[in-house]
């Protein structure tokens, strides 16, 4: 029972993080801030959601599979973000701390 409540709290929190990340990816002013919003919340959200699902599954083979998925996501997500940022930088997109574009749209 307690485990059930805990898992629902984790799932809702995870969903909230992903939602915030999605809003950030749409509303942020330039490429790097958008990527920042999407990647950080994505990692946190996936940890929370997978742990929540693990609480639902109980101690079984499914838990180990979910743990493997979690490790896979934690390895690939940040790597993909790094590769994306690196590609953007190499193609000549400079990160700017304080742009006019950012001010006007915020």
């Amino acid at each position: 029972m307690l485990l059930d409540i805990l898992s629902w709290i984790l799932l809702c929190l995870g969903g909230g993080f992903v939602l915030v990340g999605g809003i950030g990816a749409l509303r942020m002013p330039n490429f790097y801030t958008r990527m920042h919003a999407a990647s950080l919340t994505d990692s946190t959200g996936s940890i929370l959601i997978v742990v929540g699902v693990m609480c639902q599954a109980g101690l079984s083979l499914a838990t180990i599979k979910l743990l493997t998925i979690l490790i896979f996501l934690l390895l690939t997500g940040p790597t993909a973000t790094y590769a994306l940022a690196n590609a953007a930088l190499l193609s000549g997109m400079k990160p700017q701390a304080d742009t006019d574009e950012g001010r006007s749209s915020s």
């Binding site: 896979f72 390895l75 690939t76 790597t79 790094y82 590769a83 690196n86």
Partner: peptide, 18 residues
């Protein structure tokens, strides 16, 4: 390829066997 990008290469090498 991506030989001069260290992080994707290390993670990729880790993942390919799995």
């Amino acid at each position: 390829g991506l030989r001069h990008h260290l992080i994707p290469q290390v993670v990729g090498r880790l993942l390919v066997p799995f």
